[in-house]
Nucleic acid binder design. Sequence first.
DNA 1: TAGTGGTCTAGACCACGTA
DNA 2: ACGTGGTCTAGACCACTAA
Lengths: 230, 230
Amino acid sequence: MSRTASTWTEIRAEALRRINTREWAPGDTIPNEAELAEEFGCARATVNRALRDLADEGLLERRRKAGTRVPLHPVRRATLRIPVIRREMEDHGKAYGYRLIFNRAEVPPDDVAARMRARRSMLHVASLHLADGMPFMAEDRWIDPTVVPAARTAPFATGNANEWLLAHAPYTHGEIAFSAEPADAAVATLLDLAPGAALFVICRTTWDGARAVTTVTQRFAPGYRLQTTL
Amino acid sequence: MSRTASTWTEIRAEALRRINTREWAPGDTIPNEAELAEEFGCARATVNRALRDLADEGLLERRRKAGTRVPLHPVRRATLRIPVIRREMEDHGKAYGYRLIFNRAEVPPDDVAARMRARRSMLHVASLHLADGMPFMAEDRWIDPTVVPAARTAPFATGNANEWLLAHAPYTHGEIAFSAEPADAAVATLLDLAPGAALFVICRTTWDGARAVTTVTQRFAPGYRLQTTL
DNA sequence: TAGTGGTCTAGACCACGTA
DNA sequence: ACGTGGTCTAGACCACTAA
């Protein structure tokens, strides 16, 4: 009859301990909220908060009527902070630099048109991002000017397109993908690498409702790592 | 005096709309919970739930006494589902295959010892994962047998080490990093690629309290993408 | 249809951090 | 010192879904 735990973080910690020690083993259905609330001497809402948090991380599976179970094959989830290049660099004490390569209107190739689900003429902006003066990342971006009219006259020559868009073109949702790819001749020249060098690639498309705002491919020079905790 | 919104998801949607339309502009402090609760005709806890959710995604910044603000430079967060290779493959309708390359005890090199913060002899397990019979990912794993004694006699010859560990060695937390790297001669042979091919690399270390359970480097053949939504 | 989690309420007290 | 978000409560009703 311990009158101990009562905050939701304490209850979460205790539940995590039971999962890790297999007191609640994979496949088990754990006691329901009402029972746990009584055990811990707290309100059901407090138990709910704790268990919901674990479920958000994939450590529990909850279904009405069926109850709460410890999954047999937990699919751990990690939260990734999508880097804002300049800030990431400045946090590492490096000087950020930016250079526009070109900024023109043209009809996108098939793959880009498919990603944005639109085939009209777009703004095509290529740029190079530098760390302490060294080429660091090459960015290839397409912007739909019918969604962001102001982009036609945006000062991409002096400021990075990502930051301009963040400030002028909010989005509702997006997709992001990570992959690896060899440097082609053009990118290798930009990043001052041998052709074929292994690049880390982030490809992102953002939407304002049903319309694509922008799609961007960022190719990072070797050495770049994206990290997080589990 | 709209008596409309009342669920926390509706309130979150409305708040998101105000952020996107800049009715609440970057840098602004938004009304406090009590005021919003009155506006929406709901309890303060309901507003709290909605705003907390947006803050978890990085779309709002909340501080006691200071209130809730729309960040000037939102750092969007994305949740990434860490793939379980076999399941990911089977979801794509491909046959999963596994082959053990070697399984031996040895003292880890410096970089591994540093990652695990331990220098004793470890189990070193290398394996190859196949999709429809084609080499797909090469895995290089180190396991601390003092943390997971049963690993010494685990059947890594027939079953993939990741799944065995998930079932037998729970962890409390971990680190994961994504990068790109060229294939060295050994990995190129394993994956049936030309040396230097651009590989997507996932490097993960998991801990049980203060002790490292395992560290693993997974190198994926070209074509692999890790995706999520924003 | 009945049991379980999901949510909401109205009120309370607390912790933090700004002023 | 005091305003704001963070959390907890006790109770209620609802939504989903397994049996």
